[in-house]
Design a protein around this nucleic acid. Structure first.
Lengths: 219, 219
DNA sequence: GCATCGTACGACCGACCGTGCTTTTTCTCA
DNA sequence: TGAGAAAAAGCACGGTCGGTCGTACGATGC
């Protein structure tokens, strides 16, 4: 069978192994985002990556290894495409906004089909028996939660959020909105339901906004 | 066929079949709530229900049939234990509160282990290929969404919510809070994290509360 | 008293699973 | 260019999956 020559890229001296490994991992990511991490089997991945099942074993020692590497790739992409652009925005509320916008775009993006694979993964393993994957998912959640908390705290210190704001609570609700949007998008299709999430986010921000000019009326 | 003449009649004799079927279904529900609907296999269920695999086939024609029956049982229990008690409360905000309280208790309940199986199911099938289970999940979502919308609309008409309230948006955020709580509970254990969901719910209510005494300050 | 039907059983099927072991192909570099 | 290393394939294993088949037991209707 005539092998397909590498996809035209110069590949500056990356040993071929690394190259195919990366390619296979991207295939695995696309596959996992469609059928879940549990459904990511060596057989289907092999067929999809035009590699024999045993050929995969040269790169991944076990299915669990494959899952974790794939999850790591997804995390790295999320950091690169969502977190980094967010922290490029000015501290405080603008940065929080940028995070939300970037996240929504990431969910909408086609590069990782079927939405945010990290969220799917979290829900897939939230009731799994203890194991490396579950641990990785828990670590990922804590990282996200504390990141959002930090952004909220910065906004608080900058006087852009009301002093009564609880950063942890803010992060909880922030994550809840994103998760709800992701779920609905997958369940009901791609209709412009992002509006609901956007409104909820605006309400969250408005409700915690600093109001220097007058005393708060509610309560 | 000595089939049941009519549903629900005295039927002093609950034909043995119905009995074991109900027993097996409850086993299936408990099992599915621990390992998910996809993981609910005939083999494991047979071992768990002390019935041979082929014995199960006398009651369920296929795995899909088993899944759907199990889902129906869960839905019926949810209606019985959460929805009905809620509509027993006075119309308006009290009824909404009762729904939230009941739902949180249902998630906490041990009767259906591992939280709300309907929520888990929804997340399990939100990216599944089209099929009866997915359809059932979508229908279930619409039913819940429209129920909450209705409660919100009633509260609106009773003047207990601010006129600018959008019932659909209210339902979206309500569901988001419950889902987020359920997810966190499964992911991080049973710690008293319900407080976060409670606070978010209170904020949702407070934010949409009618304020007859003064004009709203925000915006 | 006998035929019928629903319930339950054990054996079995083909497909796919994850994973090793061996062989062949391909790449790398002196 | 050729030898050694690395990558990929081939193959076989034990296991589980959803599902079928033939069969046997117990109740029920005629």
């Amino acid at each position: 069978m005539p092998r397909v020559a590498a996809a035209g890229k110069p590949t500056a001296k990356i040993s071929k192994s690394q190259n195919t490994k990366a390619r296979v991992l991207h295939e695995a990511l696309a596959l996992a985002s469609r059928i879940g991490f549990q459904g990511l089997s060596f057989g289907t991945l092999a067929a999809h990556a035009r590699l024999s099942k045993s050929g995969l074993f040269a790169h991944f020692h076990s299915k669990e290894d494959l899952q974790i590497r794939t999850l790591e790739l997804a995390s790295a992409m999320f950091v690169e495409r969502v977190l980094k652009p967010a922290v490029a925005a000015p501290r405080g509320v603008p940065r929080i906004r940028r995070l939300f916008d970037g996240w929504m775009a990431w969910i909408r993006s086609d590069s990782v089909p079927s939405g945010d694979i990290l969220i799917s993964c979290a829900f897939e393993f939230d009731d799994a028996p203890p194991g490396p994957m579950r641990d990785a998912v828990v670590r990922g959640h804590h990282a996200l939660q504390s990141t959002i908390e930090r952004l909220a705290r910065q906004a608080l210190e900058a006087g852009q959020l009301a002093p009564r704001t609880d950063p942890a609570q803010f992060a909880f609700e922030f994550l809840g909105i994103v998760h709800a949007h992701h779920h609905l998008r997958r369940l009901l299709g791609t209709d412009p339901r992002a509006r609901r999430a956007r409104l909820a986010f605006e309400r969250l921000l408005r409700d915690h906004a600093a109001q220097p000019h007058r005393r708060r009326a509610a309560r």
